[in-house]
Simulated assay, not measured.
Amino acid sequence: MSKKPVIVFEGIEGSGKTHHLNKISKYLKKRKLSFIKIREPGGSLNSEKIRKLILNKKSNFNKNTDLLLYLASRSENIDLLRKYYKKRIILIDRFIDSTISYQHYGMGVNLNLIKNINNHILSNFKVSFTFLNLVNHKNMIKRLNLRKSTNRYDNFKKNFYNKVQKGFIKLSNKNKKKYQIINSNLDIKLNEKLVLKKIEKLIR
């Protein structure tokens, strides 16, 4: 594996993925290792504009428009990602698996459509490793209630999040060597150590 891997943090709302990504970015800074981090949707200036549109509680897009907006956000990031691909460690908060899990498994968008557009945008850009954070519904709701503000994707029904999380698990089962499952219902300090231990191996 590249010493400058592309590392993705995936999971449904309230699963702790962003927490772990931020912890790892602090660790990399402390070690003075070169890296970039982005979030999806978001990242570049144009992607952040699209993010506001997608997540706005007043937005009411159909499922295909939702998909195309997410992929448009990714398209706006790809030049930045390619610029640093294999040159710096790349940390991404949500990526390909989120698109498939939310839009296909959650909303029922055609999987081939997602794959075809995604492959066209990304070409030879590949993810090295993924941390999949899993959380039960009770803890998810508890954590969302602690947030100062929520967005449109924080307010779906329980069944939707169940379908999305099962979708993530299906994707991880296809290539277990490139995934680490993090049980976010466990003590967060324990999980921080698990993530850090794996990161050290990935960048060694």
Rank of each mutant, 00 (worst) to 15 (best):
185 N>T: 11
36 I>T: 01
168 F>T: 02
92 I>D: 06
122 L>V: 11
128 S>Q: 08
152 R>W: 04
178 K>D: 04
102 Y>K: 03
36 I>F: 07
143 R>L: 09
72 A>W: 05
5 P>Q: 05
53 L>H: 09
176 K>W: 00
200 E>P: 01
87 K>F: 12
58 K>C: 05
57 K>C: 04
126 K>I: 13
179 Y>N: 04
198 K>C: 07
74 R>G: 05
65 T>Q: 11
75 S>P: 00
74 R>L: 00
65 T>W: 02
114 I>M: 02
65 T>V: 15
9 F>W: 04
184 S>Q: 08
180 Q>K: 15
186 L>R: 12
38 I>E: 10
30 K>L: 14
188 I>D: 00
173 N>H: 08
121 I>V: 07
51 R>S: 06
65 T>L: 14
114 I>S: 05
112 N>E: 12
104 H>P: 00
94 R>D: 09
72 A>T: 13
3 K>E: 11
60 N>S: 14
176 K>S: 12
34 S>W: 00
132 L>Q: 00
178 K>H: 06
154 D>H: 13
86 K>Q: 11
97 D>L: 04
50 I>D: 05
120 H>K: 12
153 Y>Q: 12
52 K>T: 07
106 G>F: 11
150 T>N: 13
196 L>K: 12
186 L>F: 08
150 T>Q: 14
203 I>C: 10
143 R>M: 05
20 H>C: 03
190 L>H: 10
41 P>F: 07
36 I>A: 07
47 S>Q: 06
14 G>K: 02
130 T>G: 01
20 H>N: 04
168 F>L: 07
136 N>F: 09
41 P>G: 07
200 E>A: 02
54 I>G: 03
144 L>F: 08
25 S>R: 06
131 F>C: 10
160 F>Y: 15
118 N>W: 01
90 I>V: 14
133 N>A: 08
164 V>W: 03
166 K>M: 12
106 G>E: 11
18 T>C: 03
136 N>G: 05
161 Y>E: 02
114 I>G: 05
80 L>Q: 01
6 V>Y: 09
194 L>I: 14
4 K>Y: 15
78 I>L: 03
182 I>S: 00
11 G>T: 11
34 S>N: 14
44 S>K: 06
107 M>S: 13
191 N>I: 09
157 K>Y: 07
48 E>A: 08
123 S>D: 15
151 N>G: 03
58 K>R: 12
12 I>G: 15
127 V>L: 01
79 D>V: 08
113 L>M: 14
107 M>E: 13
139 N>Y: 04
116 N>F: 12
124 N>H: 14
50 I>Y: 09
38 I>D: 08
111 L>Y: 13
45 L>S: 14
176 K>P: 11
109 V>K: 00
106 G>I: 15
6 V>A: 05
28 L>E: 09
184 S>A: 12
29 K>G: 10
83 K>E: 15
165 Q>D: 11
190 L>Q: 14
54 I>T: 10
4 K>Q: 13
151 N>Y: 00
172 S>K: 10
75 S>A: 14
135 V>H: 02
141 I>Q: 07
44 S>V: 08
85 Y>G: 03
174 K>D: 02
2 S>E: 14
46 N>S: 11
132 L>S: 04
70 Y>Q: 02
112 N>Y: 11
25 S>H: 02
69 L>W: 12
6 V>F: 15
168 F>N: 03
